[in-house]
Design a protein around this nucleic acid. Structure first.
Lengths: 208, 208
DNA sequence: TTAAAATTAGTACGTTTGTACTAATTTTTA
DNA sequence: TAAAAATTAGTACAAACGTACTAATTTTAA
């Protein structure tokens, strides 16, 4: 990729993350970089194009993480390692998550893509749960659609954990590695079998 | 309260809910009402003042709901009824939740108030759980801070359920009464005792 | 080395933003 | 009913917005 284009994306990411997407204009980005607004428009005709470039960067990173997890065996430890790396990526592109509603409302390309994405994510999750049940670590569902509902909650937590931190914490900025993984682990704990809970409690102390 | 002031708040609420807080200017509100911008500035000098008036309306409604719940006995049915009414209120003031990060970032008054609020909410929740444990409906915690973590997740779901719907659903606008209560119920189900689960399964069919 | 292409700077346009100000009108009060 | 207060309309302004345009410069390629 072009050198300037890369620099623009880096600056935009930093500014979006710091001040929030609606608070950062194209001029602020070019000023921040010390380049002319015309130069910026040359590389990205619209602000939406910058958003999209960053969004698809994020998506590619996450796809790569999913691919890597798919290669490993199904285990609690691997799941947790995956969630951990997932949250690091989320944090790197946190403006996407902190302003996700605004982003989707004002950018049809991203909105359409994301809506497709979460459908396949859900299927992936349910397949994984099935494998966990087969391996005797997760219990069978006790309620209709119990694991579909679990996924729904986990999705909300993945998408909005940073937002929740942002509006809760008194500290300015974020602690890069908070308790997100611990929160995720607690979400799945009640669905484990005795065998699963035992394994879980061996791993847990490492995250507290 | 003044008649015009009331009309301004109603219009602002509707426009904020529909188009999103950052997409609605003071002029759009006055245009929508057919009053002059000068008139609007007379009643609310700054846009933030409108946000705050609506936010504190919301807070008052919720306080009233908490008060009403506090009067009733501790039971699953009463809890669910409460969550239901809670979500209706959230939906009425949905712009607060859909743009909550942007709102908090740009409005110090609301931000400060909210951060105080959730502290007392957490304590209320934990007290309630204790009562549920005493009544034999919830099990004891199996992990350190297990119910603190449950609360954290429930808080995220309460605050961001509408956002999750907004970015997930293909329908324009919202279905006023979605599956939020069902989602909440699934959150607490795994923590119930056998007695609690039995009670739960009697109530569940009413919500599907 | 010279022509073409890509990149950059600089400027400018029409809107919209938040907000301030004055003057007219309506309502309230004495 | 007259004076005072509250409310409303209308206008204006500087700043910022997204974006378009042209001209200069640099890089690439023939």
């Amino acid at each position: 990729m072009n050198k300037t284009k890369k620099k623009i994306l880096e600056a935009a990411l930093q500014l979006f993350n710091t001040y929030g997407l609606p608070n950062v204009s194209q001029r602020k980005i070019s000023d921040h970089l010390g380049i002319s607004p015309g130069n910026l428009t040359y590389h990205f005709k619209k602000k939406e194009n910058i958003e999209e470039a960053l969004y698809f960067d994020l998506v590619n990173w996450i796809s790569e993480e999913f691919r890597q997890m798919g290669e490993k065996e199904v285990s609690l430890q691997n799941l947790i390692t995956f969630v951990d790396s997932f949250f690091v990526t989320i944090y790197t592109y946190r403006f996407v998550y902190l302003d996700i509603v605004h982003l989707m409302r004002n950018n049809d390309v991203i909105s359409a893509h994301y809506k497709q994405l979460i459908i396949s994510r859900k299927l992936q999750f349910l397949r994984m749960i099935e494998q966990f049940i087969d391996s005797g670590l997760f219990r069978e569902a006790e309620l209709p659609d119990e694991y579909e509902m679990l996924y729904k909650r986990i999705q909300i937590i993945l998408d909005f954990y940073l937002s929740a931190e942002e509006i809760t914490e008194n500290t300015i900025g974020y602690r890069p590695m908070g308790n997100h993984t611990l929160l995720f682990m607690h979400s799945i704990y009640p669905y484990l079998t005795l065998k699963g809970k035992k394994q879980f409690q061996e791993i847990l102390p490492l995250y507290e």
